[in-house]
């Protein structure tokens, strides 16, 4: 393992453990206040845990227990932090900002400038070398900040929502740049955007209330979520239920036949995209189709679609259907989806 991490922070109710393989990128997702930033500040050394131990490439970052207290200073950790805001030193030029890391590690001025220039070139900001941060746009500043973080040659790169302060027109270009520089680099990216997780990360850690609620390979966690937050992130309907003699039996009581031979009583989850869920006034009894009677709780506009929530499920329908079917909160509807559109997996 490149990184092993276990830490508790009593006063924030934080208790998280995970591992990171060398060269892998981990995305940390979770609602506000879940402890995502706490995790990064603990790793960067800007916060001390009440108990725990972390090792990066065999070197201890912190080791705090009842009878021991090792806290390596941030500068000796080999961990660079890239924050939401670029936080470029305002009194230094872009080049001097990027050269700051190598200079601080004792590289001489000429070599540090050469390193800085090559990193600026790598992030597509070589022409900005002589500019002060006050004269850089948000996207340009974030490019320089990426170069600065990488020029320090970190063993681990921490990214704290690096795209969220950027204009929507700039974010895709920076995301592409990150995808490029994160290849074969140990990194942890805190984000609230599942797209970042899909495009940048090999594995995902979902935190809630200071605890890990889901973790695993990105593709697995975001296609087979086991918590409602994970399902929300992945944009999926999650229905929990049990394996019974008839097949999958949801907690609400509807049944879906199953071909597999999982033992009866196994807890199962069913995931289906809201776009695959149809809504009708009368029950659909076609073979290979699930049909659930439910009362509409809420109707919301989503771009060119209308999302309605009923019986714990979401369904995306065309605005014209909403009018044709007379869907309003409180109306009774039948939700349907084809069996092959749902994936069912053990919890």
């Amino acid at each position: 393992m490149s990184l092993t991490f276990t830490a508790t922070l009593a006063e924030r109710g934080f208790d998280v453990a995970f591992e990171l393989a060398p060269g892998e990128t981990l995305a940390v997702l979770g609602p506000n206040g879940a402890g995502k930033s706490t995790l990064l500040t603990l790793l960067a050394g800007l916060l001390a845990p009440s108990m725990g131990r972390a090792e990066l490439d065999g070197t201890v970052l912190f080791d705090v227990g009842a009878d021991r207290r090792t806290l390596v200073e941030p500068r000796h950790r080999g961990v660079s932090l890239l924050a939401q805001e670029a936080l470029l030193f305002p009194h230094l030029t872009a080049l001097e900002n990027v050269a700051f890391g190598p200079r601080s590690r004792g590289v001489d001025r000429t070599a540090a400038r050469a390193t800085a220039l090559s990193w600026l070139d790598r992030v597509g900001a070589a022409d900005l070398a002589g500019r002060r941060p006050g004269r850089l746009s948000g996207g340009q500043a974030q490019r320089v900040a990426i170069a600065r973080a990488l020029a320090a040659d970190p063993s681990l790169l921490l990214l704290d929502e690096p795209l969220s302060a950027l204009d929507v027109t700039v974010a895709p270009a920076i995301r592409t740049l990150l995808r490029d520089v994160l290849v074969d680099r140990s990194a942890i990216i805190v984000t609230h955007d599942p797209l970042d997780a899909f495009l940048l990360a090999d594995s995902v850690l979902i935190l809630d209330g200071g605890r890990v609620v889901e973790s695993g390979a990105t593709a697995v966690v975001l296609t087979r979520p086991v918590t409602s937050f994970g399902a929300h992130l992945a944009g999926l309907n999650l229905v929990t239920g049990l394996r019974t003699a008839e097949g999958f039996r949801s907690e609400e009581g509807w049944v879906l036949p199953l071909a597999d031979t999982a033992p009866e009583g196994t807890s199962l989850a069913l995931a289906v995209r809201p776009g695959r869920v149809t809504v009708s006034r009368s029950a659909v009894t076609a073979p290979g189709t699930a049909c659930i009677a439910a009362e509409v709780d809420d109707v919301e506009h989503r771009g060119d679609l209308v999302r309605l929530h009923a019986g714990g499920m979401a369904a995306d329908v065309a605005p014209s259907d909403v009018v044709a079917l007379g869907i309003v909160p409180g109306s009774r509807m039948f939700l349907g989806f084809r069996h092959e559109d749902a994936s069912i997996y053990p919890l």
Binding site: A44, L46, P74, R75, L81, A83, R105, A149, A152
Partner: peptide, 21 residues
């Protein structure tokens, strides 16, 4: 804090970041 994570010692942070700011 950024300076420290980039590997700067306390004196370097004071001299090159805090005081110029």
């Amino acid at each position: 804090a950024v300076g420290a994570t980039l590997g700067a010692g306390r004196w370097t942070v004071l001299r090159r970041i805090t005081l110029p700011l």
